[in-house]
Simulated assay, not measured.
Amino acid sequence: MHQWTDRSGPYSQGSQDLYLEKIFSVFHTTNRYFVEFGFNTLSYGLNASGANTQKLYEDGWRGLLLDANNENTRINLKKHYLFATNIVAIFEENNVPKEFDYLSCDMDSHDLWVFRAILEAGYRPRVITTEYNSNYPITDAITLLDPTIVRNSVDIGKFEFKFSQCAWGAGAGALRIVAEAHGYKMVGRVGNLDLIWMRNDLLMNQCSLLPPFEWFFHDASIGKLHHRQQSSSDILSQIIDYETYVRTGGNLTASNRAAHSILKRRRLPCYESVKNFF
């Protein structure tokens, strides 16, 4: 694994600061614009898990911050629940440039679908970090569903986020499918927190020098319990195998069944308490 994988930066929860500083010292910046969600505090420097953009902000970068519970006009932090169906409108309302330097995706939920919607709309951040769920083996493409994908309409004003214990977010394999389909290559891993991606066109001839995706997970604690074990079988209706979803043209029933088959076969600690419901 990379020497920074399990280190910590000055502000970020893990080594995100270290990676970003090095990447932008080599590839330089353009507009020094960022987007970060979710920003789980009212401002930089307060007690929280560590914002990925704090060092950038202190260096003069500016951008859009999004969170479900916090708002602060001084730092352009807007309060929104994010879904595949509203993220592009939010970007447009806030004049997010189509190409910007850095995107941080971390909302402990249906991150994959929001991430995918951003890229499908033609936004092309140069560097991206995505939170990933290390409970899932990297060969699997398990993800939590976006409720707006499941149902035609969701009352966003009445939506309440509930952390899905160890089933939050998406596994590395699912995020890889989305990132690579839109022209990104993984260049780093931050412990059991984030994956780091760069646009292929920036890497150019250096793509051949980068290690394969699997290399970044050597000696990683993938598949071990991260966060609390599932206590309710209700979660099983909210997860799918994203690879099947893509292959079947969005068939949720087939994708959900494929996820159940994978999890039954894997016998992951995350689902030990609900294994009889597969």
Rank of each mutant, 00 (worst) to 15 (best):
M1G: 15
D194S: 14
T248W: 06
D219Q: 13
L209I: 12
W4N: 11
N86H: 09
G60A: 07
Y123Q: 07
K264C: 13
R151L: 11
I240A: 01
I90D: 08
N47I: 11
G60Y: 07
I222L: 14
D140C: 10
R176V: 04
P211C: 07
D101A: 08
Y102C: 10
L64Q: 03
I262Q: 03
V88R: 01
T139S: 07
N94A: 05
T244F: 01
C105S: 08
N192F: 09
S104G: 15
S134M: 08
R62V: 06
Y19L: 10
G171T: 06
S231H: 04
M107I: 13
L145W: 00
F24N: 05
K78M: 15
L20D: 01
G191P: 03
G250E: 14
N135W: 02
E214I: 08
I177E: 09
R151G: 08
T244R: 01
M1A: 13
R267I: 12
V26G: 08
L46A: 12
F277W: 14
M204I: 10
T248F: 06
F39A: 12
V154N: 09
A258F: 06
G171D: 02
F27P: 00
D241G: 03
H182A: 14
L42K: 08
A48W: 14
S12I: 07
M204C: 09
A117Q: 03
Y11P: 03
Y242D: 00
I239S: 00
N52Y: 05
E272Y: 04
V187S: 07
W4K: 09
M198K: 04
N47G: 04
P212Q: 15
N192V: 10
D155E: 15
H226T: 14
P212G: 05
W168M: 05
E243Y: 08
N31Q: 14
F91C: 05
E131Q: 08
A68H: 04
C270W: 01
D101R: 03
I235C: 04
L236R: 05
G188L: 06
S25F: 08
F34T: 00
T30R: 11
F91N: 00
N69G: 05
N76G: 04
A84R: 14
G50H: 06
R257A: 14
T73A: 12
H80M: 08
K275Q: 13
I177C: 04
N133Y: 02
P269I: 08
D111N: 14
G250T: 11
W197S: 07
G223S: 08
D155R: 05
F115C: 01
H260R: 13
